[in-house]
């Protein structure tokens, strides 16, 4: 196994993913096989190669800094699991 259980726990925490105990061993095994597979890239000589940033060598387009969107809060909040008075509700953050 190229990844330890502790490493996978750390990755899951960084990715904000709750994993069930019964799926854990399977995830460690499969993630390890993926990491082993992509490790073959380490053998490729790339010293003078410029990393590819964009398939068409384009730079990010900018737009004028003006307001273009209208307020559609009600439409967007129609999909929210919990709202009140136009706010999104989450569990208490500050005691």
């Amino acid at each position: 196994m190229s990844l330890s259980k502790e490493q996978v726990q750390h990755i899951a925490a960084l990715a904000c993913l709750q994993l069930d105990e019964d799926e854990f061993d399977d995830i460690v095994a499969k993630l390890s096989s993926i990491v082993d597979f992509v490790d073959q890239l380490q053998q490729v000589p790339t010293d003078d190669v410029v990393p590819m940033a964009h398939p068409l060598d384009q730079v990010q387009r900018l737009r004028p800094d003006v307001v273009t969107e209208t307020n559609e809060r009600d439409a967007f909040q129609a999909n929210a699991p919990a709202i009140q008075d136009g706010f999104y509700l989450v569990p208490k953050v500050i005691e």
Partner: peptide
Amino acid sequence: VKRRIMTGTYVLSAGYYDAYYLKAQKVRQL
């Protein structure tokens, strides 16, 4: 989806970015 998110999180995480993501973008150039 969880596997891919975790693979991605791993290759971007501190200490691994150059070895994986940057390396892959170089091979992508090739």
